[in-house]
């Protein structure tokens, strides 16, 4: 795993700010690292402690987003569930029935004109569900299988 450079961190934080209204302040206590196509968010103190003892780690913190097709960023389900509560835009409310449909692996249609096409955070009465790609009323199911009802 490698720390993101300041420039890379700026790209990530700016994307999350512009797309979801997540304030850069939300990430002030986190270091961002990359591994393959994933960007991870880890508590600064955790990362510092491990640096002190020179331990090689496989992963640090939580997968925050992943690069898709090499150029497009997608917030992960785990990232949305932890940081999504701070989001102020491109969040789509889904009803209980729609939530069940999503958790069963289906794509849904929503009436959410306030949200721009692209990646959106889905939430319901019981919390944040995850991230999907919205195009018009169509919301593609992007929940990992492990997060679905089996």
């Amino acid at each position: 795993m490698q720390y993101l450079s300041n420039a890379e961190r700026e790209i990530v934080v700016t994307y999350l700010s512009e797309r979801f209204g997540l304030s850069p302040h939300v990430f002030k206590d986190f270091v961002l690292l990359s591994s393959g196509r994933k960007v991870w968010a880890a508590r600064q103190l955790a990362a510092l402690a491990i640096e002190e003892i020179s331990l090689t780690v496989e992963t640090a913190g939580l997968p925050l987003l992943r690069w898709r097709s090499g150029r497009e960023m997608k917030l992960t389900t785990a990232g949305a569930r932890v940081f999504g509560c701070h989001a102020t835009r491109n969040c789509v409310y889904v009803s209980h029935r729609e939530m069940l449909s999503l958790l069963q692996g289906n794509s849904i249609e929503v009436d959410a004109q306030a949200a721009a096409d692209g990646y959106v955070i889905l939430y319901g009465d019981y919390g944040i569900i995850g991230v999907s790609h919205k195009k018009g009323p169509q919301v593609m199911n992007m929940l990992p299988r492990a997060r679905q009802l089996t």
Binding site: A47, T56, V57, A60
Partner: peptide, 26 residues
């Protein structure tokens, strides 16, 4: 292990793969 940490939303966990005996060096 990784999936279960994501599930609870822990950001303070660093996952490593070492023989536990290696920690005697730390």
């Amino acid at each position: 292990l990784r999936a279960n940490m994501d599930k609870i939303g822990a950001t303070n966990v660093l996952v490593s793969q070492h023989d536990g005996r290696a920690f005697a060096q730390m």
